[in-house]
Design a binder for these strands. Structure first.
Lengths: 340, 340
DNA sequence: TTGTAAGCGTTATCAC
DNA sequence: GTGATAACGCTTACAA
């Protein structure tokens, strides 16, 4: 065992000022490199900073400046999904890239319990961040409430369930689902079903709606199975049920690539070939799409772009610019590979 | 277009005090629910807080308290890997769970560029966090330097390249690699090779070392291919080369599950059956392991436990407790499935 | 160009 | 029980 030495007291501007034989004001000017500092003073101060090991104290700075130069990135996903969801990483990187360029520190806060929710709400209230990007908000979310109450500059990725007046960026799940289903129909499939997932969310419900839009008269409710999550396992389960309901099914729209991958496994277990016996399409164009055999035809979801756009949106609010009403919808090209 | 109204000035303790007709000290006592407050005062103050919409200012609090009740979680991964790496999510969740329970806010900082590095270093220096958990530190990392200089309570996940005296939690990559290779040998394979990856890191180098340990006399350098990253694509590439070097190879240790998945694809493309023609084992027991066909035999890496242990380690430092010297190594059970 | 001093919103130490 | 008041470390007029 070894005792960690107590953290030694940190040097302050005062220490630097004394060391350099100037006033604190001048030191501050050097630190924030403002003009009107003689080069002799600057040199002395820089040496002093080095000598006493001064690092500015953000708390003090942000107290007086009334801002923190940080933007929160809130992820609110159930445990399991967070590990799986291929989009979150891209969104996060997109947001970070934009914020970084503007010299804002992105701090991600993950919410994984009720306790987390409360603590994060406090954290946001406390002025530790100047704005916030929110992924997958919940209905009646305390976080959303706090943001509204504080008028904290915010942008949602995906459609916020309530509070429609807050800015968001997203994709048109319904139109995209319709488009890929139509594309699937064009390949000549006769009995097309869907493994629908996450119907408690807008994205899940919209994808199903787009599917029924595309099918029109040909829509058969019996050919839709519903599973709770966008996961591999749920996909396999949903597909097995679909196969049971109609062994002759020859086309499937899976609500996400992970679901499609699971479905693919169920199909393989049932001895069906893809795309020979059945054509299948997914949604997301995540890393799943290239891991499956055959590679998935799917809807490209611009994860990075979503994160970047949300971050831009927060920054523009921070600059006090006017906001376009309503949300921003990004394009979702269809990428056609081998699974259908 | 609509103009977002300016954020209205936030209420302070002072406002609450005036409203409730008491002093700021008393309000502060109520806010931090300390004893010695008359219930009449408490009631009046709570009403006033509600009325003026008071939320405490963290910057001020953390300035006077000299701590922030937050712990940083630093991820330093190249872009592509961050999206793929299955362990990071688990580590993050493990750390968050522990910190949350102790009422610390975990803030994750992702480093994705030089600019990020500098900004994060400043952020850490600034007192916005009381401690830090670091995933995949770099050699000669400015972050590591800052931590050392500030004596910021820290714990590394995985072995920190330099600064060996800092606490870390990890696994014994070498022993684990040896164990699974031996297990693979016991299945009767004659020509066993390895797709080694990320040899510039300890984990990668150690896994190769464990492999050679296990093989002893039977080790044949020609049966090892080296690829830069723990990725699917690199795995496929490495396996193709292995196949070229020795078409009769019948056992493969892939440096990670993602690598194994890629190798599996290369094997399939080459018309080899698994585990019939060749047995293959991976490392990590990540979500990859169950996505492949057949499921992978692999080394279980306790991602959640690593995050949790690292967080515990930081908390214990924060409590001023003594630290065990050296790192903590967690168990890595072998999970045997169908790929070998 | 530099120094002085008044806050920023808390907590904490005293007296009362 | 409660109210002054002095920090905490910094920025920023305003004076010099």
């Amino acid at each position: 065992m070894v005792t960690i030495p107590a953290r030694r007291k940190r040097a302050t501007i005062h220490d630097v000022a004394v060391e350099a034989g100037v006033s604190r004001g001048t030191v501050s000017r050097v630190v924030n490199d403002e003009p009107y500092v003689s080069s002799s003073a600057r040199i002395a101060i820089e040496a002093a900073i080095e000598k006493v090991g001064y690092v500015p104290n953000n708390a003090a700075r942000s107290l007086v400046m009334q801002r923190s130069e940080a933007v929160g990135f809130i992820v609110h996903e159930p445990h399991s999904l967070f590990l799986d969801d291929p989009n979150i990483g891209g969104i996060l990187l997109g947001a970070n890239t934009v914020l970084s360029r503007a010299d804002y520190q992105m701090v991600s806060l993950v919410i994984d319990s009720q306790r987390d929710t409360d603590r994060v709400a406090r954290y946001l209230s406390g002025g530790f961040v100047d704005g916030v990007v929110i992924v997958s908000a919940r209905h009646e979310d305390p976080i959303t409430k706090v943001i509204g109450k504080l008028r904290l500059p915010a942008a949602f990725v995906g459609h916020p369930p309530d509070l429609q007046e807050l800015p968001f960026v997203g994709i048109d799940n319904r139109a995209s689902a319709r488009a890929i289903t139509e594309r699937l129909m064009q390949t000549g499939r006769r009995r097309i079903g869907m493994v629908a997932a996450a119907l408690d969310r807008d994205s899940g419900a919209d994808r199903l709606a787009g599917f029924t839009d595309a099918l029109g008269d040909r829509f058969d409710p019996a050919l839709v199975t519903r599973v709770p999550l966008y996961t591999f396992n749920d996909g396999a389960m949903g597909m097995r049920e679909l196969l049971q309901r109609d062994p002759l099914i020859d086309g499937v729209f899976a609500a996400s690539d992970a679901v499609a991958a699971g479905a693919l496994e169920a199909l393989r277990d049932a001895g069906r070939s893809v795309p020979g016996d059945v054509g299948i399409v997914g949604f997301d164009d995540s890393s799943w799409a290239l891991r499956t055999q055959p590679h998935l035809s799917t809807v490209h979801q611009p994860a990075f772009g979503l994160g970047a756009a949300a971050a831009e949106c927060v920054l523009s609010q921070l600059r006090g610019e006017e906001q376009p009403t309503g949300g921003i919808l990004l394009e979702t090209p269809i990428v056609w590979r081998d699974s259908a």
